[in-house]
């Protein structure tokens, strides 16, 4: 397992997110009080502290906010591979890999439009990744 990709272990506070990726949904949370969408998951609003929050299905649309292209070996990855931060349409940002796209500065253009894709790692874990919209 030493060369396996490190996979997430859901906690009670994040279970809904990982349950969502299994069924092809990118689930975010929104504060019922201040209406702000946020990520990563937690059972309260990081903007105002309210415990009244709701889970919703995000559009899965975003844009490429920033990235690096790693040239060193990493468990589960073949270099060069890009680690990206995606600006989601709903406001929050999340880390992801960009798939179906050459891992080059020329192909990875900042602000390019992206759509979420769900990549199954095993029976219990599906990762949300992103691919170019066009």
């Amino acid at each position: 397992m030493r060369n396996a990709k490190p996979l997430p272990e859901p906690t009670p506070e994040t279970q809904h997110f990982w349950d969502g990726t299994l069924v092809g949904e990118l689930r975010l949370q929104r504060c019922d009080t201040c209406r702000k969408a946020y990520f990563p998951p937690r059972p309260f609003c990081p903007a105002c502290g309210s415990r009244s929050v709701s889970i919703f299905k995000a559009s899965g649309r975003g844009s490429l906010y920033s990235y690096v292209i790693c040239h060193k070996e990493a468990p589960g990855f073949t270099p060069p591979y890009a680690i990206a931060v995606v600006q989601l349409e709903e406001g929050p940002r999340m880390m992801a890999n960009i798939v179906e796209c050459p891992q080059t500065p020329e192909a990875l253009e900042l602000d390019m439009e992206l759509n979420v894709v769900f990549v199954k790692e095993n029976d219990t874990v599906t990762l949300p990744l992103f691919k170019p919209a066009k």
Partner: peptide, 11 residues
């Protein structure tokens, strides 16, 4: 571990 490491942030 959940939201960064799976995307290859090792160092």
């Amino acid at each position: 571990g959940q939201f960064e490491a799976p995307f290859g942030t090792v160092w």
